[in-house]
Nucleic acid binder design. Structure first.
Lengths: 142, 142
DNA sequence: ACCGGGTGTAACAGATCCTGTTGCACCAAG
DNA sequence: CTTGGTGCAACAGGATCTGTTACACCCGGT
């Protein structure tokens, strides 16, 4: 598959909001964020909407509308972003139910669910250790 | 949804081959494996073909043809299976190149690549700790 | 009270991927 | 040479993701 790029888009938007705030620009429109990501503003409104529902950004309507960080960038972890954009887990189980007459078919799904759960926990631990501030710092090095 | 189920199919096939071997049946046809997974034999031939190229199973042609484990199930880790079926990494970068005029657009991809690499390493460490024998044992418990 | 810039969302197109299926060439043991 | 099974190409159907257009709605400024 081509893995999806939602986490990338969301992290990009947050890092850009963090840098703009540091420069004194508290609010950015979806069009301004889209100009950095180089895509359509609607894509950004979808992602930023997810982040808003997760409480990571706030939005203003009316004249002078736009998006701001809801917290300091040090206090936003990539794990929260990952949960906000609801990326699907890396491994899927069988599409059709395996043969329940076969001992392997009967027990394989719970067995693999356990393994996959541990793998996802390892992923989450790693994502939790990186904040938007870290991403922005690494970004500005390049 | 939607992650693909290739690792699941491959692990299922290997666990079933391991159990059949223990029962004295060294060789299974793709149709016999497919009957347990409950799908089309061609799906299994594709997955088993990946596993053969990775050296995890062997195949016999002609009359009495079929598939066997190339090693003891204790010596096959899920990490090898994962690499054999070539699942794509969990996170994708931008589809279109970000705006290189923007400092965030310029540096975000290498920054996120670093993070994503660490996440994948954590995933791989976890997968390496489970063998097909472990999967089969867990499977037979249920 | 109106204006206007921006958000929220639905609807749709194109691309890509995955699963499942059919068909057929090829292989080797008996 | 027969025959059961593999190897592989081709295709259909479904799902998902990105990108785009369109339009209702919101609210600060005037």
């Amino acid at each position: 598959m081509a893995a999806n790029s939602r986490l990338t888009i969301a992290a990009h938007a947050l890092a850009w909001l963090a840098l703009a705030r540091r420069r004194g620009q508290e609010v950015l429109t979806s069009e301004q964020v889209a100009a950095s990501v180089n895509t359509n503003p609607v894509i950004l409104r979808r992602s930023l909407g997810d982040l808003r529902r997760a409480g990571l950004v706030t939005v203003r309507h009316g004249a002078g509308a736009g998006w701001s960080l809801a917290r300091e960038p040090e206090a936003i972890s990539l794990l929260e972003v990952y949960d906000a954009v609801d990326a699907h887990p890396p491994f899927g189980l069988h599409h059709t139910e395996p043969n329940q007459e076969c001992p392997v078919g009967k027990g394989i799904r719970p067995a693999l669910s356990g393994v996959y759960g541990r793998v996802e926990q390892a992923m989450r631990r790693e994502l939790a250790q990186t904040s938007i501030a870290d991403v922005l710092r690494e970004t500005l090095v390049h």
